[in-house]
Design a protein around this nucleic acid. Structure first.
Lengths: 216, 216
DNA sequence: ACATGTGAACTGCTTCACAGCG
DNA sequence: CGCTGTGAAGCAGTTCACATGT
């Protein structure tokens, strides 16, 4: 039944979404929820919810549904959200600064230890309580603080070069906001958020109305 | 062969990526490119590139590859990037402001006509050359300016309510940065960017090292 | 009676492999 | 001879449907 076998990225994404819905339900005092209700809120189907959860165990009660608080803590455990994650943000521009103060990050246990930039005018300034550090000190700082994750918020032209410095500094996970695909060794995990690309997807959908396969 | 038949969202995403790679190649004076080279740069396979393009026509020359400039203009046409797209940004917080000045948007023909907020202290201020408008005027403004796309950069708690106002204002495409799935009528196109969710995906990948199906 | 958990069927994206053409 | 374009095969993710448990 449950397993540590390869789980689809889409499944993990939905688990995060379920967690959010469940936390919201918990705040409103709801104690029990069915796969049907969870699916409606999360924009998927009940069968999908049950299948997603079944990869990790059986958390429900037949005839009754899921106990909200219990499922919340199971999902937190599965997603690795019980602990603190140390994060560096690279790039103190508009996007980097916005991310530094993004509430959704802090809330989930992601602590921003430092923001890096190579612009001497920015180094030393304080962005949302975090001092901007000189990018040149990245490797040294990383040796000392061993962050698990880097958020890349730099221009596309330098993203690949910066990513290589990050990998060289011994960091194994990158959340990439630059609009280019990163080329990294296989043991490095990269997830990319490409905002321009999503906008272009909308443009395509508008132009080709009712010829795209839908998605949330 | 080519068709206006339903194209997978993943395909459209890759087309945007190919376009970016091709533009970069063009800047460097490269006139011809093979599906193999395009794939390497774009983080996919040559067969995938050829298949993606084949849905829309045959743009290459056997034995030679693709003419870069020609393929660029074909992709621009396919993606609907030949024209101007009128965009409203809703939410003048950190993320909304960062998006307003995001170069990647302007570059592709996305013009930000207005930024909306309901905080009276922000209304009237200027963010990157665009005046912050009162959210209450959205419907009136939309009737006059008929924007095609709205970028939602508001807190999750109000995202659904705001989305409904947007739909009521007659706008049919939403790029959602709020961390909740939006519930909208079927004829409205929504694409979501959920940054917290991507970070959580990284956390999961780290915890379960070598048990996730990889992706770029 | 009701809702979960899951093998089996299905759908659709990706990869293969090669014929076709320059 | 090289590289595209594309049916066919393979594979992964989703949906179905029902046996199982409360």
């Amino acid at each position: 039944m449950h397993a540590d076998k390869p789980i689809a990225e889409s499944t993990v994404r939905r688990l995060s979404l379920y967690l959010r819905v469940l936390e919201h339900a918990m705040e409103r005092g709801i104690r029990t929820i069915s796969s049907e209700e969870l699916a409606d809120e999360g924009g998927t189907t009940s069968a999908q919810v049950r299948k997603d959860l079944s990869f990790f165990g059986s958390f429900g009660t037949r005839g009754r549904g899921y106990h909200v608080a219990e499922l919340v803590s199971e999902l937190q455990r599965i997603l690795g959200l019980g602990r603190e994650w140390r994060v560096y943000i690279i790039g103190a521009g508009k996007i980097g600064a916005a991310l530094a103060s993004y509430h959704g990050f802090v809330q989930r246990g992601f602590t921003v230890l430092g923001i890096y930039d190579n612009d001497p005018r920015l180094v030393g300034t304080i962005v949302d309580g975090v001092t901007v550090r000189d990018f040149a000190t990245l490797a040294d700082d990383a040796r000392r603080e061993s962050p698990e994750i880097v958020v890349l918020a730099v221009p596309g032209e330098v993203a690949q070069a910066v990513a290589e410095r990050v990998v060289a500094a011994g960091i194994h996970a990158i959340l990439n906001f630059a609009p280019v695909p990163l080329h990294v060794p296989a043991h490095i995990t990269v997830r990319s958020v490409n905002m321009a690309l999503e906008l272009e997807g909308l443009a395509y959908a508008i132009v080709h109305r009712d010829s795209v396969t839908p998605a949330a």
